[in-house]
Computed example of a mutant assay.
Amino acid sequence: MHIEQYLDATYLKTAEQAKISKKENKAIVEQYIHEAIDYNFKLIMIRPEFVSLAKEMMLNTVSKVCIGTVIDFPKGDKSTAFKLVEAKKAIQDGADDLDFVLDYEAFKRGEIDLVKEQVLACTKLGLEHHKIVKWIIEVAALNNHQIVQLCALIKNVVIAHFKESSYESVFVKSSTGFYETKDGSPNGATIESVKLMLENAFPLPVKAAGGVRNYQEAVAMIKLGVKRIGTSSAKTIVDGNESNSMY
């Protein structure tokens, strides 16, 4: 198993969140990009402001590692128009994958038409530019019934409006890794939540993000059927070690 080709090596902290200077934070981003190139990970996932930096580094090394970024991160509560503007800029800067945070709170409030409009408009933009689109549903903010409903909603929008050949380019993704749970429960992918996603998002692929910290856990997710794993511990996983990272 070439596990590195399932891994989206991820670093999404701001300097403020990491409690370091912007210069130091940029150095960490560069380190993650170098590791992605050295280990031939599927993708490097970074914040939008670093996409052009990653693109330059990939070109300089003639690397085939893809570049991903997050849109309307981490809460997903901005308008569809905001999401589209941010996504267009990421595309211009060289992003290959666009991981949109769905407005899951609007979904929970019953604003279904708004959510459908968001999924349709943003997916259309991504596919028109031949990008991979991922929808982050934030499983830790949802109960099991809501996970099922939201996966089905995304799937149904995609099936209704796009060709079957596009399905493999639209993922449902578990988590941002930044959601704060009140009871200390996992804020990322769990076996239970991923099973629900796989069952109800099909034929769309699933990305398990957050909580995968070692090789065994990564293999278990892949055996369940996920096509991508988002983790800040990609190097640790491939090296066969254990990470204490929360993402």
Rank of each mutant, 00 (worst) to 15 (best):
I132N: 05
V65G: 01
N187D: 04
S52W: 03
E180R: 13
I3A: 02
K131A: 05
Q31E: 15
V51K: 08
T123Q: 03
V119C: 07
A220N: 13
K88S: 14
K223M: 08
I154D: 05
D72G: 02
S174V: 06
V206W: 05
D96A: 03
F162G: 11
M246H: 12
I136Q: 02
I33F: 07
N25V: 07
K19Q: 13
I44R: 02
K116Y: 02
N156Q: 13
F178H: 09
G76F: 04
S174I: 06
T61V: 11
I37E: 04
T181E: 06
A9F: 14
S193M: 06
I132F: 11
K134P: 07
G110S: 12
V170H: 04
N143T: 06
I28T: 13
Y6V: 05
V226Q: 01
L224D: 00
H129V: 10
Q92R: 12
K124I: 01
K223F: 04
K134W: 07
D96K: 05
E111D: 15
R47S: 15
Y215H: 14
S245L: 04
K23L: 00
G126S: 11
S21L: 00
K108P: 00
N187Y: 01
E138G: 09
I137W: 06
H130C: 13
L142R: 05
N214R: 05
L12A: 13
K227L: 10
K195F: 03
V70I: 12
